[in-house]
């Protein structure tokens, strides 16, 4: 029995899992200082996506080969992107000289171990991690707020409308497409949309604070604007330079979404041997991609489109299946 609070915490982590290292910087590049408007529009687009998901593809089960293939590829793609982000983020800030395998292999095996214990463990872990994440993020954002000014937003609405629409689409795709992995878990439609809107509000809050402190020029320059903001925290005149501790909070949502993906994979594939091969190949490909700058750049730039294509294939194939009893 999964309670409502546990559903909310799981949805919160899954919604924010694509924002580190690819979410904020892509959206800021397209629509500079008017991103707040595109985030609000993007929430509405995402809510519409989730409504479609709930109506047509959740609670369906079927076993033909096409469905299995689509589930494999979707979940493996999401795990791949998550581990790629872990590798890039950890080697940029925390451990600059360590080889990639030592960073990614423990992380992915922990996610696999968590998924083996069942859905109850995953949901309880997210419920335990939720207050830590919310507390640290709100305190750090409020501490940074005094450096910000409203001049970074003015003049309002100078970005052309086409770009605002594109970036709101990007936002909707980033936040809503990962919810496809919840097709096995029985979530009520109203609760789903409500939790999605609450968690989206939190990321809008973070985005607004990033724009107001960094300024309209620097948000397009930095690769990790959500981490650069944390470098300015100064509490009570003596607590400073703690961005390393607070930056760890971003790892929680990557962990949660990877373990839900592994849980779905476990249901389709029953043998441990095949999943071990999948883990080894993911780690190898992550190393390969992060060492070649062109591939990493290509994935970074085209990430929303890739997500949308895979998500829509998933949607179409599941739409044709019959509802389970």
């Amino acid at each position: 029995m999964i309670t409502n609070k546990q559903k909310f915490s799981l949805i919160y982590f899954i919604t924010n899992s694509f924002f580190l290292a690819s979410g904020y910087s892509l959206i800021f590049k397209v629509s500079g200082k008017d991103t707040w408007l595109s985030m609000i529009l993007g929430t509405l687009i995402g809510a519409f996506f989730i409504y479609l998901m709930n109506k047509y593809i959740f609670n369906k089960n079927s076993n033909n080969i096409l469905t299995k293939l689509v589930t494999y590829s979707f979940h493996i793609f999401i795990i791949f992107i998550n581990i790629l982000v872990v590798r890039i983020f950890a080697t940029s800030f925390f451990l600059t000289k360590t080889p990639g395998i030592v960073i990614t292999l423990p992380f992915i095996s922990l996610a696999f171990m968590c998924s083996k214990k069942g859905i109850n463990t995953i949901v309880k872990m997210s419920e335990l991690l939720l207050p830590i994440s919310l507390f640290l993020i709100t305190i750090s954002m409020i501490a940074v707020l005094k450096d910000g000014s409203i001049n970074s937003f003015l003049p309002l609405l100078t970005v052309p409308k086409r770009k605002i629409f594109i970036s709101s689409l990007y936002y909707g795709i980033f936040t809503a497409i990962p919810h496809l992995m919840l097709y096995n878990i029985n979530i009520d439609e109203k609760i789903h949309i409500k939790s999605y809107i609450y968690s989206s509000l939190i990321s809008i809050f973070i985005g607004i604070i990033i724009i107001s402190t960094l300024g309209p020029y620097l948000i397009k320059v930095f690769r990790f604007p959500e981490y650069m903001v944390l470098k300015q925290i100064k509490l009570f005149n003596f607590i400073e330079k703690i961005e390393n501790l607070i930056g760890l909070v971003w790892f929680f949502d990557l962990f949660m979404s990877s373990s839900v993906c592994f849980y779905n994979l476990n249901k389709v594939i029953n043998k441990n041997f095949i999943i071990a091969i999948i883990i080894a190949s993911i780690v190898y490909f992550v190393e390969f991609v992060s060492k070649n700058y062109e591939y990493a750049n290509y994935i970074y730039k085209h990430l929303p489109i890739l997500l949308f294509i895979i998500g829509s294939i998933f949607f179409i194939i599941f739409y044709r299946n019959k509802k389970s009893s």
Partner: peptide, 8 residues
């Protein structure tokens, strides 16, 4: 994370 998994 390992500690939390074992606890849960």
């Amino acid at each position: 994370l390992y500690f939390l998994i074992k606890l849960c």
